Simulated scan of single mutants.
Amino acid sequence: MNKTLIMGSLLLLVLFSSCKNKQMGANNPNPILAYPVEAVAPQDVELKSVYPAVLKGQEDVDIKPRVDGFIDKVFVDEGAVVRKGQPLFKINSPTSVQAVQAAQSAYNTAKLDVDRIRPLAEKGIYSSVKLSTYENVLANAKGALNEAKAKLSWATVTSPVNGIVGTINFRQGSLVNNANVLTTVANTTNIIAYFSINEKDLLTLLKDMKGSTQAEKIKNMPRVKLLLSDGTEYEETGKIETISGVVDAVSGAVNFRASFPNKHGLLRSGSSGKVVIPQPISNVIVIPQEATFNQQDKVMVYKVLGDSVLQKSILVKATPDGKSYVVLDGLSAGEKIVSGSIATLKSGQKIKVKSLK
Rank of each mutant, 00 (worst) to 15 (best):
S174V: 11
T242M: 04
A249T: 09
T158C: 10
T183A: 01
N255K: 11
K217S: 11
D230K: 11
T189Q: 09
Q214V: 15
L175G: 08
K225T: 11
E241M: 13
D230Y: 13
E147K: 14
T156P: 08
D208T: 15
T213V: 13
P222F: 05
V247M: 03
D201F: 10
L227W: 06
E236G: 00
G231E: 13
R223A: 13
L206G: 06
N198W: 05
F260M: 03
V254D: 00
L152V: 05
A193C: 09
S159M: 06
E235R: 15
G211P: 01
N169R: 14
I191V: 15
F256K: 02
N262V: 06
E235Y: 12
K200R: 12
A249V: 04
N178Q: 15
F195T: 00
N180D: 15
N220T: 07
N220S: 13
T242E: 02
Q172D: 07
L205N: 03
A186Q: 03
K217M: 15
E241G: 10
D248G: 02
E233P: 09
G163I: 12
V224F: 02
N180W: 12
G163W: 02
K207I: 05
I191S: 01
S229P: 07
I164Q: 09
K207S: 15
T158F: 00
S229E: 15
M209G: 03
K149Y: 09
A148E: 04
L182M: 13
G166S: 08
V176M: 08
V254T: 04
S212A: 14
D208Y: 12
T204C: 05
Q172G: 04
G163H: 03
I168P: 01
E199N: 11
N178D: 13
I191P: 02
